[in-house]
Structure formats: C-alpha cells, structure tokens
Design a protein around this nucleic acid. Sequence first.
DNA 1: AAATCAATGGACTTTGATGTCGATTGAATG
DNA 2: CATTCAATCGACATCAAAGTCCATTGATTT
Lengths: 137, 137
Amino acid sequence: MRFTQTAEYALRALTHMATTESDVPYRAADLSEATGIPIHYLSKIMRRLVSAGLLESQKGHGGGFRFARSLKKIRFADVLEAVDYETEPSTCVFGWGECSPANPCPLHPFWSRLKDDFAEWAHAHTLDDVRTGGLAA
Amino acid sequence: MRFTQTAEYALRALTHMATTESDVPYRAADLSEATGIPIHYLSKIMRRLVSAGLLESQKGHGGGFRFARSLKKIRFADVLEAVDYETEPSTCVFGWGECSPANPCPLHPFWSRLKDDFAEWAHAHTLDDVRTGGLAA
DNA sequence: AAATCAATGGACTTTGATGTCGATTGAATG
DNA sequence: CATTCAATCGACATCAAAGTCCATTGATTT
C-alpha cells in the first residue's frame, strides 16, 4: 500500500494549505519549508495542480498559490489524478488484456475488491474533511 | 492504488501455479511463457520467494519450483512481503516522524483507514482462496 | 564420466521517477 | 523605470526499479 512520492507530496502540500488557511497566497518556498518537500520539485507539482484546476497561481511580489475552488469540492481523487496517480486503474494485475466480471482472471475478485475500496476512499474524502479533522460519513 | 511491478509479478506467478497445480515442478521458463513475465526477471523473483520460504526449488533435469507449504498458509501478505512490498507501512504520509493516534497528523485518520483496509485484505486472502476461485469469508 | 538441464548469483544496462538548476516571465513596489 | 519578488519552463542530474546477460552450481540421464 503506497503512493508515489509525487502523489504523497501533492496530498501533503494541499493538506498543509487546507489546515492552515491563510488570506495571503502560499509561496512555494514557504510550503517547502513547512512540509519538507524539496522546493524545486514542489514547484513542479504545484504547476500540475494549477493546470489541473485545483489551484490558482499568482506571479510576482505578493504572489503564490490559492485554492481555485471550495475545499468541499476537492476530493483526494482529484488531487491524485492531478499528478497522474490512477484512482481507478483498469489494467489487469494478472496481465490479461481482457479481464472483466464476464471474463475474470483468477485474481479478479480479490483485486476488484481492493480497487473498489480504494476508489471509494479517494472519492469520498475531501480537503474540507481534512480541515475539519474528522472522517466523513 | 498500485503494486510495484515486482509485487504484481510475484502474485501473478504464484497465482498461476496455484490455479494449475501440477505434479511436476514448475520451470521458470514455462512460468515465464505462461505469465508473460520476462524470464530472467522472473527467475530473480522466484529466488526471493524461495528464500522467503514460500517455494522450494530443485536444480537440474526435472527440477523447478514447488510450493513449500499448503496454499492455505500462503497469504497475499506473505507473497508481497517476500518481495519487500510492505503490507503495513509505518511511515507517515504527511512526513511526520511521530505520527500516531495520540499525536496524529492531519491525514492520519484517513490514511489509517486505507492502510488498515489494505492490511486486512492482504492478510485475509490466501492462494488457496484464489485456487478455489471465490472470496474468503 | 559426459552431456544436458534448470536454478543460482552477480554484473551490467535501461528506464522512469525523483530531484536540481538556471533562465524567463509577469506582477508589485519604490 | 528599475528592482525585487515569485511562479514558469525546459534542461539536466541522480537514483532505484526493472530488465538483461552470462558464468556457475547442482542434479539427472545416458
């Protein structure tokens, strides 16, 4: 059970923003400082979050990053997908080209359950839930 | 939600063995043929499964690999751990050194749930369940 | 004993993820 | 307008995972 480093960083940075909620935009340098994510790499990730529409950015003095929409509308799945971490992988672990409920590989039922649990998890929780500090219903 | 390629291969190879159950030992070359896993890489993985105690190997003519114990006693977790895929990762996604129920990072409750679900999954299912074709209770 | 077969082990290469760097762009400030 | 600040972008470097190769070991067959 693991994320990619990139996916983990994305979640970490946005979680930090969600749980501190400042009026002034977050500078990459400060985020890096606060989260321990290497600044240049973080910058790259932030760009992806911007182009995915999760964040807005502002250049120049006083600039930085803000959320582009309500925290309630940013699910873990949105964050993960923004950095190309699949929340609903379709390829068969067993290596079959065709692997479906109709034509299942031996691992299908097991893998499906795990996949579905994960997808549910990723889609059910938002950054607002994180801010609130509890698990959503 | 993803495994490493190595972990996936390990599960795939053992699943193939479990679902075909032959009297003669499985040769790496045949397994490679049947599963699509590159032979040399598969050989490496098989070695790890041997040294983890899941398989027995026999060199020379007529040799190959067999299960070292009952399929009922080989859980997914055993397979994954044999190739260093952690089934119960302890490091904090948020990057905290100390992250526990007593001192939780903002992502702790969410991440914990996912981790626990995965660990449960990995420990609950065995290769015998795969052979049988159904989900264990 | 010789030949063959099949796993073992180590060295090596390739690839993609991760991480670093410097130049550029756009915005705010004095 | 010049300076500074901070995101953007592309090029490059590094590292671990994945994959290849070959010589060696141990067992079997003739």
